[in-house]
Amino acid sequence: MNIHSSAKSFEILSNLLEERTGQTLSPERHWRIQTSLQPIMREHSIPDIDTLVSVILSNANRGLETDCLEAILNNESCFFRDQASFALLTGPVLDAIRQNKEKEKRLRIWCSACSFGQEAVSMAIALSENFQKWNGWNIEILGSDVSNQAINRAKKGLYSQFEVQRGLPIGLLVKYFNQVDQDWQVDQKIMNMIQYRNYNLVSDNKFVGKFDLILCRNMLMYLSEDNRLKAFQNIEKALNPNAYLMMGSAETVASYSSKLEPCQDYRGFYKRNLT
C-alpha cells in the first residue's frame, strides 16, 4: 500500500465525514477509518482504502459512500451509561425539573446523540421505575442521531445479549424486556414513551421543540470548534428556561455558551439561565 496516497484517502474520507455529519476525525484517529471500513471492503471485494475512495469519488456507488460514513461514526453506547451521573440525573436533577413543572405536568427529554437508543430506553425505564412520582404527567422522550442506520436500529428496540449486559441491571432486563431467541426486545410500553428521528445537531435547522432536559454525551468532542458552536446554539434554542443539559463527564460547555451555567453540585450538568 502506498503510504502517501493512503494518507490522502484518509483525508478525503475525514472531509466527507465532516461535510455530511459535522464530526471530525483527527489524523491520530485515522486507524478508526481502516478498522471500521474493513467489513465493507470485504463485502465489496475492494482491496484497500485507496481503491475504496476511488470508487466513492467516481460516484459509481452512492450507497457505498453513505455506508462508509455510517461505519466510521462512533455508535458506542450502553444502558445507564456512567452510573454515577445517571444516578444524579434520575435523582436530584429530575426532582428539580419536577418541581419546576409541577403545574404543567409535562416533561420533555431529548437524547440528542442516542446511537442505538440505549440512553433513551434507560431514561424511559428510570421514569417508569419512579411511576408514583410521575403519575399523571405527560412524558415525551425524543431520541435522535446523525446516523440513519443507528436510528433505524433504535426504532426496533431489539438488543443483543452483549448489549443488554452493559449497564442494565438484571432485574430491569427481566422487567422491561422480552427474550426473542438470543436477543432482547424492549417492552412496548417503554417504546411508546420514545420517538426516534434522524437529526444532525450541527446542520439541521428544523425546530424540534422545547425541552426540560437535553442529554448530549460524548458527541460534541468529535466536532470541530465551529461545528461545536453551532451544536450549542441548537441546544440553547431547544432548552426551556431552567432546563438542564447533561454532558459527558469529560466534556464542558466552556466558552461555547453564555446561557448555560454549570451546576456546582452536579458534575456534567448545566442549567439554562433565564436570559
Binding site: 452510573q83 445479549q161 449486559q165 452493559r166 449497564g167
Partner: peptide
C-alpha cells in the same frame, strides 16, 4: 452474566 462474557460485561456487573 450470560456466557459468553467479556471484560466489559463483568466490569459492568461488578459496578452494578
Amino acid at each position: 452474566v450470560m456466557k459468553p462474557f467479556d471484560r466489559t460485561t463483568l466490569e459492568s456487573k461488578l459496578q452494578i
